[in-house]
């Protein structure tokens, strides 16, 4: 989460595979937060096919982020769409910029600044799957990005891959020497010549060339607290996988992952998506909706609500 003097909180939802439920979760958590009386903006930046509007049951939007980038609208807030849910607005088209390989980093920085200046209590950014550099940068713009995984090995493997990329990207931003930066770049390649396979081996090598950068790496690891939501759990054993992932992250990366919660597998989810009606509005009593709303309350609890509840 990132907070400035406006008490604005940004959560980025990303990591892992497509189909693990990131858009579903983004939409429904957003609605839950808005029902708590907070102003919420959802940002659709899913490269794999942005369609938060479909989850919300509204038509493909008119104004998008591209209109802002191409200066057809002068302020980002003019590209916001009303969703029909009170307090909830939607911004789409962010994926176009993330996708553009040639998007200038100055442009990205401007976009980040504009997002951070939006008037809202919560901003939820759906990044979708994939780990392109610009996706990682977006993920890292909130100190506590949210990873969504399902209990299958394939999903967990992808989540770790994303987490590793994000973690190394963060370390790269923190160290100052060129040699440390290039060492981190090299470590990203699994078959690197230096033979660096784990974060500890990377740390050892960085320490060897630059003690100060080694210290910074340790500092970064201690302050990096990504969050995890486990989706489509079917048993108590599945739920416990989340705790195991937390332990594995601690042993492998040396980072403290926060297990935010889980969402049970529920037929009602599919039904609500087919109806294009968000689950927490369509069927609040369903098990999955209860799980989502619990996670939303936890997110809200971690900050004082500006307007009270």
């Amino acid at each position: 989460m990132t907070r400035d003097h406006h008490q604005r909180v940004i959560w980025t939802i990303g990591g892992g595979k497509g189909g693990s439920g990131k858009s579903f979760i983004t939409t429904n958590i957003g609605i839950c937060l808005s029902k708590l009386g907070a102003r919420v903006i959802l940002i659709d930046a899913d490269l794999g096919g942005a369609n938060l509007h479909t989850f919300l049951g509204i038509l493909p939007p008119g104004p998008t982020l591209s209109d802002f980038i191409k200066k057809r609208v002068s302020h980002l807030k003019e590209a916001l769409i009303h969703t029909g849910v009170p307090n909830l607005q939607l911004l789409t088209g962010a994926q176009d910029l993330l996708n553009a390989a040639d998007a200038k980093s100055a442009q990205k920085r401007k976009l980040l600044r504009s997002i951070k200046s939006l008037e809202s209590d919560y901003i939820l950014v759906d990044l979708g799957g994939g780990n392109a550099l610009s996706v990682l940068d977006f993920f890292l713009m909130s100190d506590g990005g949210i990873l969504v995984a399902t209990p299958e090995p394939t999903s967990i493997e992808n989540t770790y891959r994303f987490l590793k990329s994000a973690f190394y990207r963060r370390l790269r931003q923190a160290v100052s020497s060129f040699s440390a930066k290039s060492l981190i770049d090299e470590a990203m390649d699994r078959k690197n010549e230096a033979g660096i396979r784990t974060p500890y081996e990377l740390l050892r090598e960085v320490r060897r060339i630059n003690e100060e950068d080694g210290r910074k790496m340790v500092e970064e690891a201690a302050t990096f607290h990504p969050n995890l939501i486990l989706n489509q759990v079917r048993s108590k054993k599945d739920i416990e996988i989340g705790f195991s992932i937390r332990s594995a992250c601690q042993k492998y990366f040396g980072i403290q992952l926060h297990y935010l919660g889980y969402i049970v597998y529920d037929q009602d989810v599919g039904n609500s998506i087919r109806k294009r009606r968000p689950l927490v509005l369509e069927n609040y009593r369903s098990k999955a909706a209860q799980c989502v709303s619990e996670i939303a309350s936890r997110l809200a609890d971690s900050h004082r609500m500006p307007h009270g509840i």
Partner: peptide, 26 residues
């Protein structure tokens, strides 16, 4: 009990993260 279950060859939570040698060490 939790650690044993987590760092177990069939545990989905360690999949793709640790080598066999690292697992033995843990």
């Amino acid at each position: 009990d939790h650690a044993k279950e987590t760092f177990h060859a069939d545990s989905p939570a360690i999949y793709s993260l640790f080598s066999e040698e690292e697992m033995r060490k843990i």
